[in-house]
């Protein structure tokens, strides 16, 4: 199981790979849409890659609740159990 720090680091790598945003910019309080300018298709790509990386399932209904990077880290952390 990955720690919250490891989840954040892994998520930052995925976001960087998809969008070109520096991993250092991907911090807990950042909003995917407002701060990182990630569109819905990119968000779905990030979700798909995160599911595989952390071996979790992120239901479609849940994705709209993941406003910030922190929301995603918390959800993945909980879903790992």
């Amino acid at each position: 199981m990955a720690s919250k720090d490891e989840i954040l680091a892994g998520l930052a790598e995925i976001v960087a790979e998809e969008t070109g945003i520096d991993t250092g910019e991907v911090t807990m309080e950042k909003s995917f849409t407002d701060d990182l300018d990630i569109d819905s298709l990119s968000m779905m790509t990030i979700v798909t890659l995160a599911e595989e990386k952390f071996d979790v399932r992120i239901p479609d209904d849940e994705v709209k609740n993941l406003a910030t990077v922190g929301d995603a880290v918390t959800f993945i952390d909980g879903a790992q159990a």
């Binding site: 298709l41 779905m44 790509t45 798909t48 890659l49 599911e51 595989e52 399932r57």
Partner: peptide, 13 residues
């Protein structure tokens, strides 16, 4: 190999 859920959303465009 890994299931439909692993297909990337950017595939169609």
């Amino acid at each position: 190999e890994r299931g439909a859920a692993r297909v990337l959303p950017m595939s169609v465009p």
